[in-house]
Amino acid sequence: MTSNDVPAEWSPLTYRVLRSAGWYSGRSVPLDRYESRLREFSGLGMHDAARCFLGEFAGLSTADWTPGPLMPQSPFRLVPCDADTPREAGVEIREVVLRMSESAGAPLYPVGSVDEATSWLGMAADGSVFVGDGSAQLLARGAYEALEVLTVERRTDAPLPFVLVGDHLELPPGFGATRGPDGAPRWSPETERVLRLAGWQPGRAVSTEFWERTLQEADEGYAMHEAARRFLSEFGGLEVRERGPGVNAARSPFRLDPTSATEDFEIIEYLRAEADARLYPVGHLPRGSFYLTVADDGAVYVGMDEVELLADTADAALDKLVRGIR
């Protein structure tokens, strides 16, 4: 994609977020399912500005908070209504949009939602975008600018563990990453936050006996080496559900449970041969059904049809998985 394909109003971050959500230059979406349902249930007519915007962006969403430079930004969903929206919900949309239109001083058409679907995005016929749940605030004078604001600039409330510091949000004081034996942080504060929410804590140690026995009963080739035992003792059983754009790749949920590989020993053998290493399964990424494995030197690999070294250490691998780094 050339620079001419990127809207001038977008920062590199907004471009990356929208690309991760599924946008691409020249994207075109049929709108009949939205237009006919809203007209039938709410009497709202789609104007040309909304048709142009939704034709390019309808159906896109960010599944998690995006990393704005000043503060995290609320997820947004660019869907005027769902295909199975009942009549009652259509009437509610109409009432909210009419109140927003009165507040904005112009007829608005719904083009999406923000703040976990508690606020609506409405577009005027001149392309201006407003946000609100009754009263309307001007978000931007144009569609591309509105997406830039949603991704980078808009001030919103964020869930814990972020706290308000002046006019932006930060992790609470002292919420630093746990330090390793060398005194350096083991990973980023964001990874620390995600792992703690998943149930990890410093000094965590769980029994690996069940996993070791289950896999060895499935196939004698599943002999747990010490590096895998250390990994599973600290991280086994954790499940991370983070989604959305990461640093340079989409973040994917993952579960650290080796029993997911009990039916796929041939795949693990193939990955072992490709890596030329003693790999032991420690989890999987459901999206794409990729397996996570640990070599006897502690390196972490990911793969299915081919194998890739994710990181030389478990800590670095988890940081990459959580933050979306490849």
Score class of each variant (00 low, 15 high):
residue 171 L to V: 09
residue 26 G to L: 07
residue 326 R to I: 08
residue 257 D to Y: 14
residue 100 M to I: 10
residue 139 L to S: 08
residue 190 E to S: 09
residue 100 M to D: 08
residue 15 Y to I: 00
residue 303 G to I: 11
residue 307 V to A: 14
residue 55 G to Y: 02
residue 234 E to D: 08
residue 82 D to S: 13
residue 71 M to Q: 15
residue 236 G to Y: 02
residue 87 R to Q: 14
residue 254 F to N: 10
residue 301 Y to Q: 04
residue 307 V to M: 04
residue 68 G to Q: 01
residue 219 D to T: 06
residue 16 R to F: 11
residue 9 E to P: 06
residue 297 D to R: 01
residue 309 L to K: 08
residue 42 S to T: 10
residue 246 G to Q: 09
residue 79 V to Y: 03
residue 182 D to P: 12
residue 110 P to Q: 04
residue 237 G to L: 03
residue 83 A to K: 02
residue 42 S to R: 00
residue 324 G to N: 02
residue 33 R to P: 02
residue 65 W to P: 05
residue 9 E to F: 03
residue 291 Y to V: 10
residue 41 F to K: 03
residue 14 T to W: 05
residue 143 A to V: 04
residue 90 G to H: 00
residue 140 A to V: 05
residue 52 C to L: 02
residue 271 L to H: 00
residue 170 E to V: 15
residue 103 S to I: 07
residue 166 G to H: 00
residue 187 W to Q: 02
residue 297 D to F: 01
residue 275 A to G: 13
residue 85 T to K: 09
residue 146 A to V: 10
residue 259 T to K: 00
residue 231 F to M: 00
residue 287 R to K: 11
residue 219 D to V: 08
residue 291 Y to W: 10
residue 142 G to F: 02
residue 31 L to C: 07
residue 294 V to S: 06
residue 155 R to N: 13
residue 152 V to E: 11
residue 75 P to K: 03
residue 320 K to G: 11
residue 278 R to A: 11
residue 199 G to K: 12
residue 218 A to Y: 01
